[in-house]
Write a protein that binds this DNA or RNA. Structure first.
Ligand SMILES: [Mn+2]
Ligand SMILES: [Mn+2]
Ligand SMILES: [Zn+2]
Ligand SMILES: [Zn+2]
Lengths: 138, 138
DNA sequence: CAGCATTCTGGACTGAGTCAAGAGTTTGGC
DNA sequence: GCCAAACTCTTGACTCAGTCCAGAATGCTG
């Protein structure tokens, strides 16, 4: 699978480095992880990496559309490699756990706002808020 | 209208202070404003106010449901007093301007996710991303 | 395998937001 | 109206995610 990642990077004009491959692997392995978690994962995988390298790499990946950055109110930035499928997120107000929600309607459904105010809309981001099974009082 | 605000505060068990009334007035007058903008507005209204007082007041107002906090990815926190109508936001990727979008479907429509994973969902927050008329190349 | 472009590193820095403790203000019972 | 108790405001230090910088190291292309 590293080969696939290498191709993916090269295809976007990016050099292949152990750090980048490790960051991509980390994002894939743990969806919705924070920068800190990803950094820890990368470190336990390849030994060491600078904080800056992780931030840079994540930034470039997001820019190239290889991964997605999510940042619900009150949360630190999180990343995932599930991209381009217009899926949404469900966040627990209490413990902040985050789960994926497939787009209820279909392809890019929620994309159609009633009036677009002249905007050219390219994405509809939906965050559902509530209480997870553990946190809602039984 | 200050009287209305006073009643609103008292009704929620909050003491009425000039700072709080001024913060509420500022939020009402300028929707989607940042803490800094609101602080400036309050200062030019009542002379001076501490940063902490503004943060505290906004926090309490949000907690009581008097106002709403919005924080799209990459943006600093913003506040509005239009609350409880499940309306959404349209944000320009380039200039960050933010406009209100009425909920396309109806009351609390988007509230129904296909599978709720056992969560008790209480809000569906929608952010539409795109280019505003000014920023999209003609 | 040389030279250049790109990336990595470590450390300083920024800026939104939080914490804490003492001073000040509002309120409700008298 | 007055007083104590409850609540709020102020100041200043602090936290923490994220950014900036410049020199060192590395990967890539010819
Ligand atoms: Mn996801
Ligand atoms: Mn709004
Ligand atoms: Zn939970
Ligand atoms: Zn714009």
């Amino acid at each position: 699978m590293d080969l696939a990642v290498e191709q993916q990077l090269k295809g976007h004009g990016l050099q292949v480095t152990v750090q980048r491959v490790a960051v991509m692997a980390a994002v894939s392995a743990r969806p919705h992880a924070t920068t800190e978690e990803l950094t820890d994962d990368v470190r336990s995988n390849i030994g060491s990496v600078s904080r800056q390298a992780v931030y840079d790499t994540l930034g470039i990946f997001v820019e190239k559309g290889l991964i997605r950055k999510i940042q619900p109110t009150g949360s630190v930035a999180r990343y995932e490699d599930r991209v381009g499928d217009n899926h949404h997120h469900l966040v627990c107000r209490t413990c902040s756990v985050m789960v994926d929600i497939d787009c209820a309607v279909g392809e890019t459904p929620c994309l159609t706002a009633e009036t677009d105010h002249g905007f050219e809309i390219d994405e509809a981001e939906v965050v559902y808020w509530g209480q997870c099974p553990q946190c809602k009082t039984p």
